[in-house]
Design a protein around this nucleic acid. Sequence first.
DNA 1: GCCTGTGAAGCTATTCACAGCT
DNA 2: AGCTGTGAATAGCTTCACAGGC
Lengths: 206, 206
Amino acid sequence: MIIPSRTVERLIIYRRVLGDFRPAYVFSHQLAALARVSPAQVRRDLMVAGIKGSPGSGYRTSYLLDNFARILDAPAGVSAVLVGVGNIGRALLEHFGGPQTQIHFVAAFDIDPAKIGRTIAGCPCWDVAQLPSRAVELGPGLGVIAVPPERAQAVADALTAVSVRAIVNFAPVLLRVRPGVHVEQVDIARAIAKAAYFGRLGQAKG
Amino acid sequence: MIIPSRTVERLIIYRRVLGDFRPAYVFSHQLAALARVSPAQVRRDLMVAGIKGSPGSGYRTSYLLDNFARILDAPAGVSAVLVGVGNIGRALLEHFGGPQTQIHFVAAFDIDPAKIGRTIAGCPCWDVAQLPSRAVELGPGLGVIAVPPERAQAVADALTAVSVRAIVNFAPVLLRVRPGVHVEQVDIARAIAKAAYFGRLGQAKG
DNA sequence: GCCTGTGAAGCTATTCACAGCT
DNA sequence: AGCTGTGAATAGCTTCACAGGC
């Protein structure tokens, strides 16, 4: 079953908003209101994800959550490495360091000697020069790049040389990776520039 | 002239990649290679933005940059306020605190007494309770929300009650704002979940 | 009566392909 | 010859609208 990118994004949202609202059953219009999309969108998304509801009673919540987990989660969780323990990196380690089960940051890397050897939010920090050797043993599926832009490509190369199959990149650079590696760009500066543009225009949606 | 959202995003990228590569003229295929889009996409984007090139010689770089600035930048810059001086907030203050001219963080707000009264990356930090009064005098056009999810909506309400016309929201909650206020969601947890999903699938693009 | 599932329609975004310019 | 500007074609995404079920 192939699920389009936009639908995957919304499945993540549906799961999140269900956390706040958990009756035994939900209707598409209820989920739609919570996720701020149309009821038709919800039904289409669940349909393409192979999630079925019943006319009259809607979708059973526990069944929805099971399916979201089946689709979105790796059975044994995802182990991730972080490169660049600046403000963004620390935010991630703190956020995903808690009782969260799906994403595990198993190692962090930095060039700053003041950070190397320390443990940040439960995650050990190593010298970035040790990335190739350490990462090979850890076999992370996910790499997060939070280094200055001029170093991002080199880090991406090092990550893809090991087992990493997906990268989340916070650096404002377009990475070149071999086919099969997924790159998710989180472009904060662009988001701010875009918001400034549309705010100035006075239009709600672009 | 109405410029679609996706095009605005790419204009921001075109401007960024031109920084690395500044001959007198560029061809659409050169800009396309730098921005990782098709040459046709570049020509279409520049066309809808009202930016003209010449067959044979391409687009004059200085003219491109002038137009990007005309479209994307407010003449006097954009003054912004930050709410929530955690790791993400600090990253923003540090990034936009330097010689960058377009976005000015004029005030930050937090509830932590240890932060209130201090100056972080050149930006004064106030008690969030003072947001309404302070923000009214500052008249910021942009508000950035980097607080825990349960407080995000209240902060959004406070921001839209003053002059703020655009919000960048880092909290994983969908904000309800009055029409005319643009919300740009930066959903880091979703980006990570999505990358994990597509990485697991082994497909490059979703 | 109100719901889901879904083909068809509608809309948006991207690419094709080529006329016209340099 | 190689480029831009752009109508037309295509692809992708969302909504409509309604048959069928509870």
